[in-house]
Amino acid sequence: MHAIVIDDSRAMRLILRRIVGQCGFEVLEAGDGRAALDLLGGLDTVPQLALVDWNMPNMDGLEFVAAAREDARLRDMTLVMVTTESEQSQIVRALAAGAHEYVIKPFTAEAMIDKLALLGLVPTGANT
């Protein structure tokens, strides 16, 4: 299984790489939405999971999610926003744009794994 981590913070990419790596994913990284779309466009197999920050230069996470929803090739990719944006209205916007789940920073590793279990991407109870 493959995952792509899209975040302009190298520190956050490293944390997310470690957590989803422990769940058995091979991890790709991109620093913004535009770079992620370019990277994904050149891949033969689309990752099952994208972890997407919101506030990034060039193309933000909301724009990325909307673009990914429009792209038939990326249809089966599960989109999880991982962001400090935590106003109710912002979460609703992200879901309306097509995000499947949402993790608010700060998050614990266990919380991230719980969300992946909710999405059926890791077995339930992988966390206990």
């Binding site: 879901l95 614990t108 919380a111 969300k115 279990a117």
Partner: peptide, 11 residues
């Protein structure tokens, strides 16, 4: 925030 992240579907 840490608590609501745990196992609660965002919807």
């Amino acid at each position: 925030q840490v608590e609501v992240n745990r196992g609660l579907p965002v919807q």
